[in-house]
């Protein structure tokens, strides 16, 4: 592990409620490096979603520190934290969360707004990202005109178009049939090329098995943190483990 990992959680707790305090996350420490492909697993209520909110900079720790590239997030203003989130994190959701009134290209372009970028440049980049997920020919389609698998690929394009260092996915295959799910996981494995970290929150063992590292959670704590060699059995992509250093 290097001294300044991409993301570092140091004794992080997230406590909800005023009188009855619920420790959704209870003193968790965790580093995630660029190049890692991590899955976060655990039963409902284990703190996965809380972890996701923190890793995605949508939430702040109640206790402990969360730092990105060595900088503590707690000290940032909403504007700076939002900008940092836009730069560092790309989100992929179970329900895709595409904006219904925009076509595929404009949905992808949404991630590039407010970045002093010319419309031409934005369009070019969006089309590039759609190319990566094989959706370029359907760039004029709106979410209702796309299948679930296509919508999720569009969402992935939106997540990677900003070239984030962390791709954060929340049950990305949860709303898909097995064929589309396999398709989406294939894209994730392709994206695991050492230039970014990928973190997938899931309770699907098959999805978790695709990753190189599995973090198991229970009752707000990390109960296991395993490096998997099994990922290599699925394809050759597991061999990128050492790229982080």
């Amino acid at each position: 592990m290097s001294d300044t990992p991409l993301l570092r959680l140091d004794e992080v707790s997230r406590i909800y409620g005023e009188e009855v305090k619920v420790h959704a996350l209870d003193g968790v420490s965790l580093d995630i490096e660029v190049g890692e492909f991590v899955s976060i697993v655990g039963p409902s209520g284990s703190g996965k979603s809380t972890m996701l909110g923190l890793l995605g900079l949508l939430d702040l720790p109640s206790l402990g520190t969360l730092s990105v590239d060595g900088t503590s997030v707690a000290d940032l203003s909403d504007h700076d934290r939002s900008t940092l989130r836009g730069e560092v994190v790309g989100f992929i959701f179970q329900q895709f969360h595409l904006i219904p009134h925009l076509d595929a290209r404009r949905n992808v372009e949404t991630a590039l707004l407010y970045r002093q970028m010319s419309p031409r440049e934005r369009k070019h980049r969006a089309m590039g990202a759609l190319e990566v997920v094989g959706l370029a020919p359907r760039h004029e389609h709106r979410p209702v005109q796309m299948s679930g698998g296509e919508q999720q690929r569009c969402a992935i394009a939106r997540a990677i178009v900003t070239e984030p260092k962390l791709l954060l996915a929340d049950e990305p295959t949860g709303a898909l049939d097995s064929t589309n799910a396999a398709n989406v996981m294939e894209i994730f494995r392709d994206l695991n090329d050492g230039s970014r970290a990928i973190a997938i929150v899931t309770h699907d063992p098959a999805v978790a098995a695709s990753a190189d590292r599995r973090i198991s959670m229970k009752d707000g704590k990390i109960v296991a943190d395993d490096q998997l060699s099994g990922g290599a059995a699925v394809s050759g992509f597991g061999g990128t483990l050492g790229d982080a250093s």
């Binding site: 504007h79 939002s82 900008t83 949404t110 939106r158």
Partner: peptide, 14 residues
């Protein structure tokens, strides 16, 4: 939509 825009890095003021 607002949630996703926030996740994409658009601040509250935007």
């Amino acid at each position: 939509e607002i949630g996703i825009r926030r996740a994409l890095g658009h601040g509250r003021s935007l």
